[in-house]
Amino acid sequence: MTWHEEYVCSGQGEDKPMKVKALIVDDSSVMRKIVERSLRQAGIDLSEVVEAGNGVEALSALRLAAVDLILCAINMPVMDGLEFVRQAAKLENVKGVPIIMITTEGSESYVAQALTSGARGYIRKPFTADQVKENVMPLLAGK
């Protein structure tokens, strides 16, 4: 079974992909819109998109409602993505939710810190919809 078939099957046995509620965390509203568009272009059926401008806003959003997928920038004011991942990992409704970092900071140390703190993957900017698909779909399928 391919990852896409698994993803489709995870939609409670229906012949269509599951609906995904995504949280997109980035201080740039332009980047949030681009990430959302890339998710849709990747074939992910988004039921709702929650946006946050930094880690503090994202934690507040997660305390209000659970999501299925989190995409988060690293370099942000107020609370950066690495600290957000550390704190989000303590929230009960984030357990098992894939967190994917989106960053221009492609350095090994940043990536290693993010993965150690609980992120499941990362996408380096600039990215294409295909790269988003390659990184996100397997994590949704295995969620």
């Binding site: 370099n75 960053t103 221009t104 900071e105 492609g106 350095s107 090994e108 140390s109 900017k125």
Partner: peptide, 23 residues
């Protein structure tokens, strides 16, 4: 501008891990 800077430094191994970008 941020993406160009990040992409550029990621192409130079000695910069990638030891050079940070501002907002």
């Amino acid at each position: 501008c941020n993406m160009i800077a990040g992409n550029f430094k990621s192409r130079i191994p000695e910069l990638s891990d030891r050079c940070m970008l501002s907002v």
